[in-house]
Simulated scan of single mutants.
Amino acid sequence: MGDAVAEATEDNRGDWADQHLATYLSSGGARGHLLNLEQAGGRAFTTHCLLRVQGRTSGRTYIKPLIYGNVGGELVVVASKGGADTHPEWYRNIRASDTVDVQIATEAFEATWREPDDEERHEVWAFMTHLYPPYITYQQSTSRRIPLVMLAIGKPIDVFTA
């Protein structure tokens, strides 16, 4: 069931995600950080970061725009893949690395990552579902536990380019 929900979500997005990424990159982060996601069940001012990862087998560089929250000074991203039954590739690539690059608006950083456990995970999940309520439906549509990734910002790096 999860893959069907994820596919429908992806179909509804159309080229929107590609356009969002292109806008974020071409503006150096001046545009694309805040988006109105009310039509998708989200909030009017939803924050987005760019995550840059290396492919664990291909070695290629991938950049993905993701909704993020800030919990206790760490960024949080959700590996929802629209409720699909498999984890997103960016998440699988992160797990193969100690660090990841993240851009927030016009600033980019190297970051370390971790996954919250137990009570902390419960609190972070509650925060992220408040930030973007469709995550609840995504979790209900799949039997996998949707991962949460906490990013601790490190040294500054150059903003991303296409």
Rank of each mutant, 00 (worst) to 15 (best):
M1A: 13
A6F: 08
A6H: 01
E7V: 15
N12P: 07
D15W: 03
W16G: 01
Q19A: 13
H20L: 14
L21G: 01
T23N: 10
G29R: 02
A30P: 10
A30Q: 14
R31Q: 14
R31G: 01
R31P: 01
H33I: 02
L34T: 04
L35G: 00
L37A: 07
G41M: 09
A44D: 10
A44W: 04
T46Q: 10
C49F: 00
V53H: 09
Q54T: 15
Q54L: 15
G55F: 14
R56Y: 11
K64R: 13
I67W: 03
G69W: 04
N70L: 15
G73V: 09
E74D: 13
L75P: 08
V77D: 10
V77N: 03
V77W: 07
S80Y: 01
K81A: 15
A84L: 11
P88L: 04
E89D: 14
R92A: 11
I94F: 02
R95A: 13
A96D: 05
T99Q: 13
D101H: 08
V102H: 02
I104E: 00
A105T: 03
A105R: 04
E110C: 13
E110T: 09
E110V: 13
R114E: 12
E115W: 00
D117R: 11
E120R: 11
V124T: 07
W125H: 03
A126G: 08
A126V: 07
F127W: 06
M128P: 00
L131F: 09
Y132A: 11
P134H: 05
P134L: 11
Q139N: 01
Q140L: 12
T142D: 12
L148I: 09
V149K: 01
A152P: 07
I153C: 08
G154Q: 06
G154D: 04
G154S: 01
G154F: 08
V159A: 07
V159I: 15
F160R: 05
F160E: 00
